[in-house]
Amino acid sequence: MTALDAALAAGRREAEALMADTITFYRPGDDIFDRTTGQTVPGLPAVIFYEGKARVKPAQLAVSQVQAGEEELLLRQYRVAIPWSTVLPSTGERPRAGDVVDVTASPDLRLVGLRLWVQSVQYSATATAWRIIAEERS
């Protein structure tokens, strides 16, 4: 093992030690029309990339305001880190913008139920975690 390998292994252990939240990271499936209620409801995920521990933290305090149709949305950017050792699904499908991260558990109860929309995914052989840039839309 090289010095770089040892440093990366130590960094990855430390990065995972900070992962106190639990998430589900997936690609939404097609919506389904419920004939009983007359409502469209989310379908099952098309691809689940990861379920498990993560670190979810705001990227900045600033909030962006955008106009979507006739509504004004507030966008807050977050950084999500999952274990570097996480593998892609057996289909080989890679995450992309528009995929979703749901926070399912956290010591900070204000994060539970937070839905984040993926903006980008960062890959690197020398990273200590797999990092995802996502935004909350409210």
Rank of each mutant, 00 (worst) to 15 (best):
A46Q: 13
T40C: 09
R76Y: 12
T104M: 09
L88M: 12
T91P: 09
T36D: 12
V87D: 15
Q39A: 08
G11Q: 14
P89W: 00
A15Q: 14
Y26K: 04
A10M: 05
T22M: 07
L4M: 15
L116I: 08
L61Q: 08
A10S: 12
I48E: 11
D21F: 01
T22N: 10
D34N: 09
D5F: 01
I132S: 04
T128N: 15
V103C: 01
R76T: 15
A20C: 00
V100C: 03
T86V: 01
V80G: 01
Q60N: 10
V56S: 06
V112H: 12
D31S: 10
T126H: 12
P58A: 15
S64K: 14
D108M: 10
T22F: 10
Y26S: 02
G92L: 03
A105R: 05
L75F: 06
A6D: 13
Q65W: 05
Q60G: 03
R79G: 11
R96A: 11
F25K: 00
D30C: 10
V118R: 01
R137A: 13
I32F: 05
T86A: 03
Q39T: 11
F49E: 03
G69R: 04
I32L: 00
A97W: 07
A15D: 09
R96T: 09
G98E: 06
W130K: 02
A6E: 14
A127I: 02
Y78N: 06
D31I: 05
Y123S: 06
Q77M: 10
E136I: 05
V87N: 06
M19H: 03
Y78R: 12
A20K: 00
A81M: 03
T126W: 11
I82D: 03
Q65C: 09
A81W: 02
S90M: 13
E71C: 10
K53Y: 14
A17M: 14
G69D: 05
V103H: 03
W117E: 15
A6V: 13
A46K: 15
R110V: 04
A81F: 04
R94V: 02
R12C: 04
A134V: 03
Q77A: 15
P42E: 09
L116Q: 01
G43P: 10
A125T: 14
V121C: 07
P83R: 01
